[in-house]
């Protein structure tokens, strides 16, 4: 009963969120411009072509009518057909999902352990030379706009050194009915740079959080007690400090992971990584409304799911927390 209440509450919240978001995005895209100019070849199309295309896309209807049509289609599970690619919008989004998923997972697999590790060590040795270096590194990395970081990675590691490919996804392999590039050597080589560009700011973020948490915990009674009890520093760190700082870290990892899934727009654009973020920015620029709406819905669902997961983890990691 308890869980059912929570789940239904979450679902209602999610539905509300989706509705509000879809309305804003719908009107927003509508106010930006007319997608018909991206559908016809503006340099050759006649006024008649444009009028026909407008009718064919249903854009001659009033906005509210278009929106209600959109809603009623959603109820039937249809997001419509992409104006530009003439494919079901959902298929397009799902088709880009593996690329984004593997990039985000890969980046987080690098960022989380490295960030937590650096943060723990720096926090335990607060004020030491190591701590200062780590702290400076974190602030510097957090200060770099990600497009600059990405381009510098390309310039340094791909163009000047020639070690890694500069962009694209590389070879992929079929697994679970989707193409995955992490399964091939070539694909792995392609994923390193964009994953690094995504991971670095997250390393900084996680590291700072872990460091701050460690410092706080170490000042508390129970750590002093542990030390007095004669436990080894390593044991204290891994067994007592880490669990106590894990809540904010898990939160940030989950949230950043959600962000990576959807908003890695810049990194995906620069590295020509065919993921959801790139699809979103392309679709916005092409005013491909069905795809924008489908992508945003996916993003919202991912966010809500991740938030729910975070709450669940809270409950597991900290028995004091009760979900409500």
């Amino acid at each position: 009963m308890y869980w059912a209440t929570i789940a239904s509450g979450r679902l209602a919240q999610a539905a509300l969120l989706l509705l509000a978001m879809s309305l804003i995005a719908f009107i927003g895209i509508h106010s930006i411009g007319n997608p018909v100019f991206n559908v016809v070849n503006i340099e050759t199309a006649t006024a008649e072509d444009i009028r026909q295309a407008t009718t064919a896309l249903g854009l001659d209807q009033p906005v509210w009518k278009q929106y209600f049509l959109f809603l009623s289609n959603i109820v039937r599970g249809e997001f419509g057909t992409s104006y530009i690619y003439h494919q079901p919008a959902v298929d397009l989004v799902l088709g880009k999902l593996p690329a984004t998923l593997e990039l985000a997972v890969f980046a987080m697999l690098v960022a989380a352990p490295v960030g937590v590790g650096l943060g723990l060590l720096a926090g335990r040795n607060e004020g030491s030379a190591f701590d200062r270096v780590v702290l400076r590194f974190c602030v510097l990395v957090a200060s770099v706009p990600s497009f600059w970081l990405s381009m510098m990675l390309i310039l340094g590691l791909a163009v000047l050194a020639g070690w890694l490919p500069s962009g694209g996804r590389g070879d992929s392999m079929l697994a679970f009915g989707q193409e995955w590039s992490v399964l091939t050597g070539d694909g792995l080589r392609h994923i390193i740079l964009p994953a690094l560009a995504l991971a670095l700011p997250n390393i900084a973020l996680i590291c700072r959080l872990a460091r701050a948490g460690t410092i706080e915990v170490q000042g508390q009674e129970f750590t002093r007690f542990c030390r007095a009890k004669g436990l080894s520093a390593r044991r204290i760190l891994m067994r007592h400090t880490l669990p106590n700082i894990s809540i904010p870290i898990v939160t940030i990892i989950a949230l950043q992971f959600g962000g990576m899934l959807a908003f890695a727009v810049v990194v995906e654009t620069i590295f020509a990584w065919p993921g959801v973020g790139k699809l979103l920015i392309d679709s916005i620029q092409l005013l491909d409304r069905p795809v924008v709406m489908a992508t945003l819905t996916f993003v919202a669902v991912a966010f809500v799911t991740l938030n729910a997961l975070v709450d669940l983890l809270y409950a597991i990691l900290d028995p004091r927390v009760r979900l409500s």
Binding site: Q13, L16, L17, A20, M21, I24, A25, G28, I29, S31, I32, A262, F263, V265, L280, I281, I284, V292, L296, V299, A300, F303, V304
Partner: peptide, 17 residues
């Protein structure tokens, strides 16, 4: 809810619109 909504929309979309 407004805050949630805001934070679940891509920054870039909000800014673009």
């Amino acid at each position: 809810r407004l805050v949630d909504l805001q934070l679940s929309l891509p920054t870039i979309l909000v800014a673009l619109i």
